[in-house]
Design a protein around this nucleic acid. Structure first.
Lengths: 192, 192
DNA sequence: GTTGACAATCTAGCGCTGGTAGATTTATTT
DNA sequence: AAATAAATCTACCAGCGCTAGATTGTCAAC
């Protein structure tokens, strides 16, 4: 019967509206202003309805984070293709990563800082998470011996840059210079 | 008159008790459990008393953060002295930084992640903050041309390592290898 | 010693939060 | 049409940061 199917479709739509509203509010006024009540108001349902979709507030953050990974992974993949040299590919991916972090700070926060219930580097890690790591690994791979170690280091550096700059700890005015310095190091300017 | 002096002394003591309690609670059960009510209970006063010491909750986080900088800066300075080579000094400082982050996660959080009202890289930046940056700069300096850029990059990398590992994004089991990889890069193994 | 001023401190409250129990409405099946 | 099941809401809980206004305690002047 098509009735239950329609119901499921409607429920999925509503869920998407919740995630969308959370993302919009977070991007607009920060995650602190994303409350269950506010979201309920936004989708025009009462608060308890939200708990039929998500176990708790963290799970909503997690849903936004997952959306974010779904966008970041292909973005990085594409950036990796343009560059002629492997050094250029590395720089392009790094730049794309930081651009993502600065343009969608709230989503980035959900992905990497806030408690979201997402599990990394575990057996049940969602595909998009692995895919994001894989995209970074792909550009690091031709430049080193231990790929995983190097990728973790590369990622950590990018994350640190994004976070310290977002919090005003380092000078936004020197983003480019820092990037060159770092890419030079990772690309192993010394080896070629 | 000694009375008002005694009062000031008592007030300063009480303030220290607040900061100490905040730090302890945060280290024990996380910052979320550090509430004004809980702190008031801890120092055996009513809630409003806390507002005679701190403007708001963030200011308490800031006080803990400042304490943290007061400890991190000399720790890094000392680490910088032991090593025979400049590469060793860099590694020692990096190791000390990460050790600090992992052993006092709550203090580290207050210093670099939570809103704390502290202002970095500004004219009214407290001395201990500048001193912390200076300690890192000192070990980076002999290894590069643009010191400030290199120090920001070094710091960002350490911060990224600390954060990603603390959140289970990268494997704690490979901390040492990552460290070697990174120190090698920053020390410019290629140049000597 | 008593009184009045002032500071220190507390009680009680506001509007908000995440989360839930139980009533009520709506839809489906018999 | 009546009974059952699902969807949804109202109303609440305990706790939060923060504050207004009452209350207590301290000290100086008379």
């Amino acid at each position: 019967m098509g009735i239950s199917e329609r119901r499921e479709r409607e429920k999925a739509e509503r869920e998407q509206r919740i995630v969308g509203a959370a993302r919009m509010l977070a991007e607009q006024d920060g995650w602190a202003s994303v409350t269950i009540r506010r979201l309920a108001q936004e989708i025009e349902y009462s608060q308890p309805v939200l708990y039929a979709h998500f176990e708790n507030r963290d799970a909503i953050v997690g849903a936004v984070a997952l959306e974010g990974f779904g966008e970041l992974a292909p973005t990085l993949r594409k950036s990796a293709l343009k560059g002629a040299t492997s050094r250029q590919a590395l720089e392009d991916v790094a730049t794309a990563y930081l651009e993502f972090a600065f343009e969608r700070p709230a989503v980035y926060e959900a992905m990497f800082i806030l408690p979201s219930g997402l599990r990394f580097a575990k057996s049940d890690t969602p595909h998009v998470l692995r895919e994001t790591f894989g995209a970074m690994m792909a550009v690091v791979e031709p430049l080193c011996t231990d790929v995983e170690i190097a990728t973790e280091a590369f990622w950590a550096t990018l994350h640190g840059l994004a976070e310290l700059e977002r919090h005003g700890r380092i000078r936004s005015s020197h983003r480019k210079e820092r990037m060159r310095h770092i890419v030079d190091m990772f690309a192993g300017r010394h080896l070629r």
